[in-house]
């Protein structure tokens, strides 16, 4: 960066453009612990009433803890499946000779670009036919499958950057390709696994459409569906309550984001959709 151009006009300009986002987040936090008089943005009292859903279940809704647990199960099992399968498949596509290799590569690339939400109807019908509708298991399988092409593609990209010499040395030292993969290559791509893991977890945690369509019932409800149903209920409009649930919901997203920002930025720019 040279000193030939002034920086403050840029900072000022972006500052103005960014203000709404900061404002929204600021009030997201503020409104959950305060009350403001009608027609005012300045709170006049502190309160914990908006967090009452933590200790008393809202009528007609599942307990928030059930929903949280379901969300956690959904996100973490999906992540586990994605990690295990894509680290194997990514290595395979990156390094191994196999019949129809370029077909698989092309297939993964096409699927990677392919907009998965369009498959919702077919998936819904398939789950109905398999009897997996309204089960966490079913929606986990679906989410994991839809994440896989992205995961495989990312992992392949990371394996591609590991020097071939490591692998060649391993083979000279007498390891099988399988051992080369588990003992030599996996440790090299640990940061990638970490990044993909965080990414998948966040993607699972935030997922809305799939659980909404495939597992909407109270017993298997996840937080996104819970919150959406709460908001959609016209009889109990309470913005501060919605925001409190939302804040609880977003904390597990914000914390890893703050800590692993740079890794996540890498992976978000790796061709994710949106």
């Amino acid at each position: 960066m040279t000193g030939n151009y002034r920086k403050w006009p840029m900072i000022l300009f972006l500052g103005i453009m960014t203000a709404p986002i900061i404002l929204m987040y600021f009030y997201l936090f503020l409104d959950t612990i305060t009350n403001s008089p009608p027609g005012s943005l300045i709170p006049n009292e502190l309160t914990t009433e908006h967090w009452r859903f933590l200790w008393m279940t809202i009528p007609g809704r599942p307990s928030i803890w059930v929903a949280t647990w379901n969300t956690f199960l959904f996100a973490s099992i999906t992540t586990l499946i994605v990690l295990v399968i894509s680290s194997a498949a990514g290595y395979s596509l990156s390094r191994l000779n196999m019949p129809a290799r370029s077909f698989f590569l092309g297939g993964i690339m096409v699927l990677h670009a392919f907009p998965t939400v369009t498959l919702l109807i077919a998936i819904f019908l398939i789950l109905q036919m398999l009897g997996l509708y309204n089960t966490l298991f079913g929606v986990i399988m679906v989410k994991a499958s839809l994440e896989l092409p992205f995961g495989i593609w990312i992992m392949k990209g990371f394996y591609d950057t590991v020097p071939w010499e490591i692998e060649m040395a391993g083979i000279q030292d007498g390891a099988t390709r399988f051992q080369v993969w588990t003992k030599l290559m996996l440790p090299q791509v640990k940061p990638a696994i970490m990044a993909l893991g965080i990414f998948s977890f966040l993607a699972g945690w935030s997922e809305f459409i799939l659980p909404l369509v495939l597992a909407p019932d109270n017993e298997v409800q996840v937080l996104s569906v819970y919150l959406a149903a709460l908001i959609a209920d016209d009889n109990n409009f309470d913005m501060a309550l919605f925001k409190s649930v939302g804040l609880l919901y977003v904390v597990p997203v914000i914390i890893p984001f703050v800590f692993f920002q740079n890794r996540l930025m890498n992976i978000y720019s790796g061709g994710n959709k949106g």
Binding site: P99, A122, S145
Partner: peptide, 29 residues
């Protein structure tokens, strides 16, 4: 571990998942 089909073995789980909830839905749509 040394098979020339190792690649396919490692790819197989991914293949099953993707086939079941990705490729088949495309066709079924």
């Amino acid at each position: 571990g040394n098979s020339k089909y190792l690649g396919l073995y490692l790819l197989a789980p991914a293949g099953i998942f993707v086939l079941l909830f990705f490729v088949i839905p495309v066709l079924l749509t």
